[in-house]
Structure formats: C-alpha cells, structure tokens
C-alpha cells in the first residue's frame, strides 16, 4: 500500500510550488487514477512517487516504509512510464532489455523469459534486432513499456501513457493495464481521459492547484458531488477548489 501524506514540492530553481498539499492512499492490486487539469501537479506527484523527485516536505510510504529512506529497494519494486521517457536510440530492444535487466539485477534466464513474454505481447519480437531510433512513436512507446516492465514490478506508475498514440496502441496498452491488475499489481494512472478512468480505475484521486481535493471510489465520485457523471463531478470539484491567480505586475 502506498500512502501519501501532506506532500509538498517547491522547485528551488524557479521557486515554483508545484505540489502544495497532496494526501492520497493507493491500495494493493487496484488501478488508481490521478485526475487533474494541466499544471495541477499530477506529474510532479507521480515523479515523487517514483523516487525521481525528492519531496520538499510530507511523506510517501510504501508498505509502511518511507521511500526516501531506501530508494534503491523501492526502485526494484516500481516501474514508471511517461510518454517523455526515451531509450538510447542506437540500441535494439533486445540489447536494451539485456542492459536494463542486468541493472535490475536479473539473471540472464529471468531476462530472457520476461523479454520473450513482453516482446511477444507488444509485437516487438520481429523488430527486436532493429535500432530503437528507427521505430515509429507507437513502437517506441511499446518498447519503453516493455523495458520498464521487464523486472516484474509490484507497482506501475503511468503518467499519461497513451498520449499521442493511435487507437490500436492505446487499446493494447489498456488491455495490458487490465492484465497487470489481474496479476495483482498496483497501477497508478494519470490521465485526462475520463472515459478511460471510468472504464479501468477502481479508485480516483483529484488534484487541483497542487492540492488533493478528492480520494475515493470512482463509482462514489459523482454521487459525492451530487451530479450524474464523472465529467460533471470533476468539473464541479475543479470549480469549487480552483483559485484564480492574481496577475501581479510590477
């Protein structure tokens, strides 16, 4: 189980307070969707969850342990994928899998087994000897996904993973997310597509202006806001919690 308590992140360089107060709870074996408008702090929260960013204050615990205390062991158990993540272009998926597999301390047998399964599922096998840089956007994303999942993580964090992908690839990834859930994995998903959330997610967290404003069951979200649909509930939560920024001019 992942617990986030009063998480805050201020970037020192530009003094931007990206996350002000986020508290969420993600349970084992569920698909948790993180919703929020652009610039709400979803990506920063996801990056802190995946140990890529250090929180300014607050706490993230993974099965009761503070993730900042032993980041390397947390990294063994998680996978993080965004549509921004790239792999070295001059390598083939085969070489990339062998390299990252070894960095994840996997045995050659484990690497081969997981590689075969993932490459077959995402249709990479026939391209596994071709350079990554020669792939289409969709194929690159599928390869990145396969490499991220190679070490068989317990928790998978997806930050808008289907952005810019065609409908077929989107469906393939969605199906895989469901499969991961069936295998008992925990999936944290950040997306703008509310339809995807209602179809896949068990629970949802909403962030507005760097603050968490809702955390609960997807089915409960509309009811809790006294509206009929998830869309309406999201808009209502946004309108109630969004504070217009005053434009300060010198």
């Amino acid at each position: 189980m992942i617990t986030i308590e009063h998480l805050k992140k201020t970037f020192k360089k530009n003094k931007v307070e990206a996350v002000k107060d986020v508290s969420l709870e993600v349970r084992d074996g569920e698909i948790f969707a993180l919703l929020g408008p652009n610039g709400a702090g979803k990506t920063t929260t996801m990056r802190m969850l995946s140990t890529l960013l250090t929180p300014t204050s607050g706490k993230i615990t993974y099965d009761g342990k503070d993730i900042t205390e032993d980041m390397l062991s947390v990294r063994r158990r998680i996978a993080f994928l965004t549509n921004e993540i790239r792999l070295d272009g001059q390598f083939t998926p085969d070489e990339l899998a062998n390299y990252y597999g070894r960095l994840y301390e996997m045995t050659p047998e484990q690497i081969e087994k997981n590689k075969k399964e993932l490459f077959d599922y995402f249709g990479i096998t026939e391209f596994s000897k071709r350079r990554y840089e020669t792939f289409s956007t969709g194929m690159k994303q599928k390869t990145s996904l396969a490499i991220c999942l190679l070490h068989d993580p317990d928790t998978i964090i997806f930050d808008e993973p289907t952005n810019g992908l065609d409908i077929l690839t989107q469906r393939l990834i969605e199906k895989y997310v469901v499969r991961l859930k069936e295998e008992g994995k925990c999936i944290i998903l950040s997306t703008h597509i509310l339809d995807l959330v209602s179809r896949l997610a068990d629970r949802v967290g909403v962030i507005v202006d760097g603050k968490s404003v809702y955390c609960g069951d997807v089915s409960e979200m509309a009811r809790s806001q006294n509206v009929d649909t998830l869309d309406e509930a999201f808009v209502k939560l946004y309108e109630e919690n969004h504070v217009e920024q005053a434009i300060v001019t010198k």
Binding site: L72, I78, L103, E105
Partner: peptide, 14 residues
C-alpha cells in the same frame, strides 16, 4: 537531453 536519464535513475543502481 535525450530523455534517457529517468530510465537510468529508476534502476536500483546508485
């Protein structure tokens, strides 16, 4: 620059 840094950082190697 190549956006490959995060994948590397996420590995359990210092």
């Amino acid at each position: 620059e190549r956006h490959t840094f995060d994948t590397l950082v996420l590995c359990p190697a210092s």
